[in-house]
Design a binder for these strands. Structure first.
Lengths: 144, 144
DNA sequence: ATGCGTCATGTAATAACGTAACACCGATCG
DNA sequence: CGATCGGTGTTACGTTATTACATGACGCAT
């Protein structure tokens, strides 16, 4: 199907499968992190029936740099920008509001460097870094 | 019981209850993080029978600055030092080896400052910070 | 074209992690 | 004395994640 539009492109987009696409759209459409089971519930009408279908899609999306897992929430968000897994920008960090549940993704090159540098000094082969801030966002503070 | 050794001390230790003490000793005796259910299994002979007993103790220990939760592992460790929850040293970070499971706790004041500074600039009221590095430790790299 | 890897999929069952609700006990304090 | 508070114990349940197994689609070498 489809018309072979742009078939050489740039190798960047791994051409998502149906399930991966469904999950990514769901994350994109949400204004807060979703658990795997939240996602599953929203995709029942599209034929998804088992958690594993969602977990498998999430795994690929995260590998592909299109989504993140929030460890302190056991939930998932799509990336703020396409480039947020690039080395240049540093490690992604997340500020999670305990009141409204919204998440703000940002990077700080210096933080990434310091952590990488600690790892280097210890001979620790760094694969992945999780940085999550919990607190109350500006909006909720002034509102509440 | 015991001989009232040092009974005024310094107000630092919140005088642990039996369950809290059992859980803390278990964490101290482990050379890798333990899940709540791991802890429970090790304390069956001491009379603990339900997960909640462990979770309640862990909650207090963490509040008291004697233990940490590792979010990316759903597991718990005791603090590296007594002072590791003090503001001075900065936020605790953890390097978790994917091979041997061991965890190295450290702090980097600069990292804590950068994150706090980002929070300040955003009006985000920071309550708690999670920093976890995943990778392979020196020992496992040279061994393997 | 046949057969063989490989990768995504679908399904069921279960493991692992965490919490709600309730009853009880002992200490402290008015 | 009665009230309250914090820790305890127990049952049941809710949520999150994985294991195991079977199937289907595709590319590709023989």
């Amino acid at each position: 199907m489809a018309h072979s539009h742009d078939h050489h492109h740039h190798e960047a987009r791994p051409d998502l499968t149906r399930n991966q696409d469904l999950v990514l759209r769901t994350l994109n459409g949400a204004d807060a992190p979703l658990s795997a089971y939240d996602i599953l519930d929203r995709l029942r009408d599209d034929g998804l029936r088992a958690p594993l279908q969602v977990y498998r899609a999430l795994e690929r999306l995260i590998e592909a740099g299109l989504a993140h897992r929030l460890e302190s929430l056991n939930a998932f968000v799509c990336c703020a920008d396409a480039g947020c897994h690039e080395k240049a920008s540093g490690t992604a960090a997340f500020a999670i509001c305990s009141k409204c549940g919204r998440v703000d993704e940002f990077t700080d090159a210096e933080v990434g460097e310091r952590l990488a540098s600690w790892a280097g000094a210890q001979g620790f082969a760094l694969e992945r870094t999780t940085i999550e801030l919990r607190g109350v966002c500006q909006g909720c503070r002034t509102a509440g």
